[in-house]
Design a protein around this nucleic acid. Structure first.
Length: 346
DNA sequence: GACGCGTGGGG
DNA sequence: TCCCCAAGCGT
């Protein structure tokens, strides 16, 4: 009597076969000039950190059009890259992107091993493994939130996240093939994105449903178990619209912290306190310009926008610049301030 | 391991 | 409306 094949033996083949027929068509998956371009793989992976493919697509197109190579990106002024990233969120990624591009350009190209990639700014465990596997064909164990979910279900891992990461990685290690590790990783992510979804998984369409212990148990959607989330506190703050002769006063935020390194309207400190002080950057009269509500990762903000009704512009203190109001898009404002500008100008 | 860090879409 | 979540990283 022959032992039947184990899931670890059958899963990679089934998944790769499924991927060959069902891979999503995504811009960064198209070979560029007939070959895989590590620059495009790296750029897309950084943009995709905690970000949906739909949100990334237009930014990927704009970046690769404007900066076709890592050398071009390395040569770009950081503030231009920050502005081009505006709206995509998690702005430290943009700063690290520039730093990484400069290291890579100075080195003469991307390193081709997971270990060396991991040393670059902005490349953590996930991205280093993904680039090594997808761009360089290395066997690397690629674990993102999709893989965590798929693996937790396949092996019915009951331990809650994040403590389960160790067991999930070990299980992912066991099913990652020696060859086509990059396709395997993308297959797992496509599966997690379209079939093995957080809610309402489509097990009838799943190529590995027969190997899935959570499916066998009857309720795959309950896995992975997650620790309860904290409530998001509410903060209140004020932003200041100071306009003169068709131009508005913009500041550049400090490099670290909320919206770090981005152009912004002056504010009353809501980002570094529980609430803003309400203190204006200029003496004189202010008028209400509206209210913006915006959700961040760890708090909700109610931002009042007030417009300057005085003429003591010379008393403006600190760094800043007058920006043409009819070209605010070019300033690269984060979404919060783009919303504030929209409200004021409406 | 916990926390800070954006934004938009879907159920 | 609200809540969840997304190809995580750095400290």
């Amino acid at each position: 009597m022959t032992a039947s094949p184990t899931p670890r033996e059958t899963i990679p083949g089934k998944l790769l076969e499924w991927y060959d027929g069902h891979a999503r068509k995504l811009p960064w998956r198209v070979p560029h000039g007939g070959a895989v371009d590590p620059y495009r793989i790296w750029l897309s992976e950084v943009m995709l950190q905690q970000t949906t493919t739909a949100a990334v697509a237009p930014y990927f197109a704009a970046f690769t059009e404007r900066w076709p190579t890592v050398e071009a990106l390395a040569a770009a002024p950081e503030e231009e890259v920050m502005a081009a990233w505006a709206g995509l969120g998690y702005y430290s990624r943009a700063r690290n992107l520039v730093a990484c591009a400069r290291e890579v350009a100075a080195y003469g190209g991307f390193p081709d091993t997971e270990e060396e990639l991991r040393k670059l700014p902005g490349l953590g465990a996930y991205t280093a493994a993904a680039v090594a596997a997808i761009a360089f064909g290395r066997r690397a164990v690629v674990v993102d939130a999709n893989v965590e979910r798929v693996v937790a279900r396949l092996f019915a891992i009951e331990e809650p996240l994040p403590a389960a990461r160790k067991a999930i990685r070990a299980a992912a290690e066991r099913i990652t093939p020696e060859r086509r590790a990059g396709d395997f990783a993308q297959a797992m992510m496509d599966l997690g994105s379209g079939i093995c979804t957080p809610r309402g998984p489509k097990c009838l369409l799943c190529p590995v449903s027969a190997d899935c212990r959570a499916r066998a148990q009857g309720d795959p959607a309950r896995l992975p178990v997650k620790a309860p989330k904290k409530a998001r506190p509410q903060r209140i703050g004020t932003a200041f619209w100071i306009e003169r002769e068709g131009q508005v006063w913009l500041v550049t935020r400090p490099g670290k912290g909320m919206l770090g390194g981005m152009r912004a309207l002056p504010d009353d400190g809501w980002s570094v306190r529980a609430d803003g002080s309400g203190d204006a950057p200029l003496p004189g009269s202010w008028r209400s310009g509206g209210v913006v509500r915006h959700g961040f990762t760890h708090f909700d903000l109610e931002l009042g926008v007030v417009t300057y009704a005085g003429s003591a512009w010379t008393e403006l203190e600190g760094e800043g610049e007058w920006w043409p109001v009819d070209n605010l898009e070019g300033a690269g404002l984060p979404t919060l301030f783009a919303k504030a500008a929209r409200v004021v100008r409406a």
